[in-house]
Amino acid sequence: MSPDDFTASHWYAIGRFADFPEGLSRPLRLLSQDIVAVRQGKDVKVTRADGRPCMVQARYGHVWTTLMDKPRALYDMPEFLEEGRRLVTAGAIGVLCSGLRAVENFLDMAHFPFVHTGILGIEEHPEVEKYDVSMDAERDEIWATKCCFFQPMAAATATGGQITEYKYRVPHPYSTILYKTCPIREGAWDLIGLFIQPTEEDACIAHSFVLVFDESNSDTSLLHFQQNIFLQDRMILENQVPRKLPIDPRWEMPTRADASSIAYRRWLKANGVVWGTAKLAEAA
């Protein structure tokens, strides 16, 4: 199936600049299509299988491309311009599931105590308090705010358990950013984000980053923390059935904790997203 218009109209991260060594052509997949990326001096050039060039831009520590001639603008993340933040990019991790599933899992705090036991949650504190979900109509994006959760080790800098406040932003069907109370700077938020490269309807590559105020951890320890968490998610994601995201509301029983997941599925549906989603008939 070829991607619906909304899915096709976006920019997608395909790697970090350093992942494209000079002169080496790298065959990649994006939205079930073959593309080739090659570094030429200061640029990465991307071409389709038929040789037509794709537009490319470098942003947020990654190289982005699109299969459209007139794509939507890539969303803004003003935090990338703030002084004093550190960016750690965690590389590209392949996951056998729809990228939409990966975004939805990222939004769901209910899995913390069971999947990230002892780090992002503990089994004795499984409850997800009510939080707010809103649509930013002007920018066409979803925000979940006032999400509070008890965490034994909220970040690489954390020294003990604390109630952590989160915000989640979904500005793109395959991107999500979480804003987390910064343990060392009053009033500031640390960012952790996923830029998904959907390779097939039911397979994706997750590029991720951490953008934090942190003076005590090395880049490598931030990286290990992040990759450890993501690999815990990967195992869960690869075991979900079906691999595509069901967006029919009759399908999975929503609970209050799933408010952001419901909003995400509705938003995809309202935007006509079909590619990467499962039909009810596929459930059996």
Partner: peptide, 10 residues
């Protein structure tokens, strides 16, 4: 001693 095996190839 953490080593950046991936993506850094340290």
């Amino acid at each position: 001693v953490g080593v950046d095996f991936y993506p850094g190839r340290e």
